[in-house]
């Protein structure tokens, strides 16, 4: 890896002061589960790393009954937090599926949301692809079996974060601090498509930090995440879905359906949500919603099978959230 300077920031102020404006020159280091491999593979070549494990690492209740999750919270702690397990099942399930116990022991919430894509062209230095400032996306007529079926390009990554998907389903916000002050952005707007932001995946600028995730109150929400991955041991999902439902009896009054590993961002499906509203939740309506969610998919040359996998994920997440067995 390229030599770099290292700064250990004790808190938010120190961390911010150590950042810079130029993309890629200074990078925050949290658990390092993603960043260290980016450094070793020379995909990231920063001049300086800023250790941000000193950012807030706690989960606290918000006055309105929601949760405020510090970016330095480790995945293992998120997964085991009593409020998360009791009220935010989709988040708990997503966290539990991340990588391996070792990765969850070190990986943080902030690092998870800010991790870089796993596209195998992106991760191999030898491919100077579009996202790395090159001229072409190698996936288009190449090995795209794990690439996007939504999103329209010109880069066809799937967003790698498992947590991002349930957070969008919950309508969560992220808190961002930077030299221009702080702001809160809806998770749904935080993640950006390549047509808008080719070189990054989020609205965060190089001189800003993600410090918190703010989750609205769960109320009577029923939620679930269903992940389809090939290997039972650590493996990236082929597709997954997080759903958040409000039910009256068995009738859906409100639904948020978000798909993961199918697009460059967590992919919310208003079509599936509309198909569910006012309907009783059962195998037939869940199947319909899944069909609706995938109706607009535009698979690439090798990944049409992902449409079926994603449908199954949506259907099973819905049934699982509502406690209906298929």
């Amino acid at each position: 890896m390229k030599p770099f300077a290292y700064v250990k920031a004790a808190n938010e102020q120190q961390a911010l002061a150590a950042l810079g404006r130029e993309r890629g020159k200074v990078l925050p280091l949290a658990g390092g589960m993603d960043l260290v491999s980016l450094l070793k593979d020379r995909i990231a070549t920063p001049d300086r790393l800023v250790n941000v494990k000193g950012l807030d690492g706690t989960i606290t209740a918000t006055p309105d009954g929601g949760l405020r999750i510090g970016s330095a919270v480790r995945l293992v702690d998120l997964q085991a937090h009593p409020t998360v397990t009791a009220q935010y099942q989709a988040l708990m399930e997503a966290a539990a599926e991340v990588g391996t116990p070792q990765i969850r022991n070190l990986g943080t919430v902030g690092g998870n949301l800010m991790q870089r894509p796993r596209c195998w062209y992106y991760r191999n230095e030898e491919f100077p692809c579009l996202k790395k400032g090159g001229a072409r996306c190698y996936s288009v007529d190449g090995e795209n079996q794990f690439h996007a079926i939504f999103g329209g390009g010109p880069c066809h990554i799937v967003h790698p974060s498992s947590l991002a998907v349930p957070l969008v389903a919950f309508g969560a916000k992220v808190r961002i601090v930077g030299p221009r002050g702080e702001r809160e952005v809806l998770a749904e707007e935080f993640f950006e498509l390549p047509e808008r932001n080719l070189y990054g995946e989020t609205a965060l600028r190089p001189d800003e930090l993600l410090t918190h995730v703010i989750v609205p109150p769960a109320r009577a929400m029923k939620s679930a995440t269903y992940e389809v991955r090939f290997r039972s041991s650590h493996d990236w999902p082929i597709a997954f879905a997080s759903v958040a439902l409000q039910l009256q009896g068995s009738t859906v009054t409100d639904a948020r359906v978000v798909l993961g590993a199918v697009a460059p961002i967590p992919w919310r499906s208003p079509e599936a949500e509309a198909a569910l509203k006012g309907q009783p939740l059962n195998e037939a309506t869940a199947t319909k919603a899944a069909e609706a969610a995938l109706a607009g998919a535009t698979p690439m040359t090798q990944n049409a099978y992902k449409v079926q996998v994603a449908k199954t994920a949506v259907k099973r997440a819905l049934l699982h959230a509502a406690g209906v067995s298929a």
């Binding site: 796993r118 195998w120 062209y121 030898e126 491919f127 190698y138 007529d141 190449g142 090995e143 794990f146």
Partner: peptide, 15 residues
């Protein structure tokens, strides 16, 4: 192997 460049896309134990 990437069909266009003959470079292996999964020379690791991740893919």
């Amino acid at each position: 192997l990437d069909r266009n460049t003959a470079m292996q896309v999964n020379p690791n134990m991740e893919w």
